[in-house]
């Protein structure tokens, strides 16, 4: 049995590492189709990563150890979060070590160090990126917590595995609080993963970039690790959304045999999620930076409303 636990844990980490770039490639591919362009294919992110890993690292003269340490830390937190979030099964031996608050905390520590790395070189771009990223995070993170809290109140647990288990065994309940929470979650996930109405992952246009501005000075394997980690972050946010709002198909406790089925569901759900992201991204224009607080404020209000309505109605 313990061999099985080890196996699923490893399987899930390998899946995360392998599928995250593919999912990113899928999103880009659908986006190309939606905009009438020819896509570079599903596996282009792999080729980008391979290219970056092969290149030498150019390091600015006054970069400190923080700048060199950050890529590894960002990668490490993403992998650890991937070992905890139930992507295909809830039977993860590491899942009790961190509940959803801790997972959000893991993303927060990665962001903390990325922002520091942005300021380490001492260019205006890095500082600008860090300042904006922390501004967005300081509104998005509490909203994220509130959306997740509503789900955990409804399922009486903050552990994601337990939430999946409860939803799948007791059946879905449609509650107004969960609707608010879902809406808020989608808005925040877009902001947290740096997608279009808030940030544009494809831009290097000087004054609009946020995440890209922080990591502007990175190159070679450092950049590869950061890019890979941000693909994993996108993947994990979709996984958290699936676990909290539509977990059907994830293998439950002691269900070894449903793993292949879980994998199938995983692919289907991610395909749909990718299309959803593209629809939002092509349908909206990127916002001016000071419209973002309104966007996130709305998400925060929605999430708080969700929790309020849980206490009052349910």
């Amino acid at each position: 049995m313990s061999f099985y636990y080890l196996f699923v844990e490893l399987l899930q980490v390998v899946l995360l590492l392998a599928l995250a770039p593919v999912f990113l490639g899928w999103v880009r591919m659908v986006k190309c189709w939606a905009q009438g362009r020819t896509s570079a294919g599903l596996f282009q992110p792999y080729r980008d990563l391979a290219k970056l890993f092969a290149k030498e690292v150019l390091l600015a003269e006054n970069a400190s150890w923080i700048f060199r340490f950050t890529p590894y830390l960002v990668f490490g937190t993403a992998v650890l979060a991937g070992a905890i979030v139930p992507i295909i099964t809830v039977d993860l031996p590491l899942s009790p070590s961190a509940d959803v608050i801790v997972i959000i905390g893991l993303f927060a520590i990665a962001r903390f160090f990325t922002a520091l790395a942005g300021m380490d070189i001492g260019t205006a771009f890095g500082g600008m990126g860090s300042s904006r990223e922390m501004m967005i995070a300081s509104l998005a993170e509490p909203a994220m917590l509130m959306a997740i809290f509503t789900v955990s109140l409804a399922n009486k647990s903050t552990s994601l595995s337990q939430i999946v288990q409860v939803i799948c065994t007791t059946g879905a309940s449609i509650k107004p609080s969960l609707a608010f929470a879902l809406l808020a979650f989608v808005l925040i996930a877009l902001a947290e993963t740096g997608r279009v109405p808030v940030d544009n992952p494809a831009t290097h246009l000087e004054l609009t970039m946020i995440h890209e501005a922080m990591i502007l000075e990175y190159s070679g394997r450092h950049l590869a690790l950061i890019e890979w980690a941000s693909a994993m972050k996108l993947f994990l946010f979709v996984s958290i959304g699936i676990a909290a709002f539509a977990p059907w198909g994830i293998a439950l406790a002691n269900e070894m045999l449903s793993l292949p089925l879980a994998l199938l569901f995983l692919v289907l759900k991610f395909a749909v999620a990718g299309v959803g992201i593209v629809l939002i991204e092509t349908g909206l224009a990127k916002m001016r930076i000071f419209r973002v607080p309104e966007f996130l404020g709305a998400a925060f209000m929605l999430a708080t409303l969700g929790m309020l309505s849980f206490f009052i109605l349910d």
């Binding site: 961190a98 647990s157 552990s159």
Partner: peptide
């Protein structure tokens, strides 16, 4: 079932 955390593991 409600919540657990292991700082050491993290």
């Amino acid at each position: 079932e409600r919540a657990s955390y292991s700082g050491t593991t993290v």
